[in-house]
């Protein structure tokens, strides 16, 4: 449809919009999904390596000895945890569990905090 406002400005500066906690959990869900997708080839590769021989299996266990790889792994652990928790939250909401606003706010917080704690635990274990 041709509106009289074709070519009109739009206000859509995301930094000037206050996002509710559910939106932040949701952006995290998307971001973590992308990270996991990007690392999927590595997972397939790791599966292959882990089955090849004893030394290659051991090499996978030693991945975290290099700090940059440990850091990547911590990020992936966060991504997996956040995506999983946020996913369970959505699955439950789909069947009407916790889909009320107050509960949804609490569960969004819970997802963000729980994923953070797990990432922190991984960081403490591999990065120190």
């Amino acid at each position: 449809m041709r509106a009289r406002s074709a070519g009109a400005p739009k206000f859509l500066n995301l930094s000037q919009i206050r996002f509710p906690i559910g939106a932040i959990a949701s952006i995290g869900h998307r971001l973590s999904g992308v990270l996991l997708m990007v690392s999927l080839p590595l997972l397939a590769l790791a599966l292959d390596r882990s089955l090849r021989s004893e030394p290659e299996f051991a090499a996978l266990r030693d991945l975290v000895s290099a700090p940059w790889r440990a850091l990547l792994l911590v990020i992936l652990v966060w991504a997996a945890a956040h995506h999983l928790f946020a996913g369970v939250r959505h699955l439950l909401a789909d069947i009407g569990v916790g889909s009320r606003l107050a509960q949804a706010r609490t569960s969004a917080w819970a997802v963000i905090v729980a994923a953070g704690i797990i990432a922190l635990a991984a960081a403490l274990r591999w990065l120190s």
Binding site: M1, A3, A8, P9, K10, F11, L12, Q16, I17
Partner: peptide
């Protein structure tokens, strides 16, 4: 207090946005 028009809607003037698509 910061007032802006509804996000994502074409602005006709100041805080007035074009609701054509919304009503369509």
């Amino acid at each position: 207090v910061v007032l802006r028009p509804l996000p994502g809607f074409p602005v006709i003037r100041d805080l007035i946005v074009d609701m054509t698509q919304f009503f369509a």
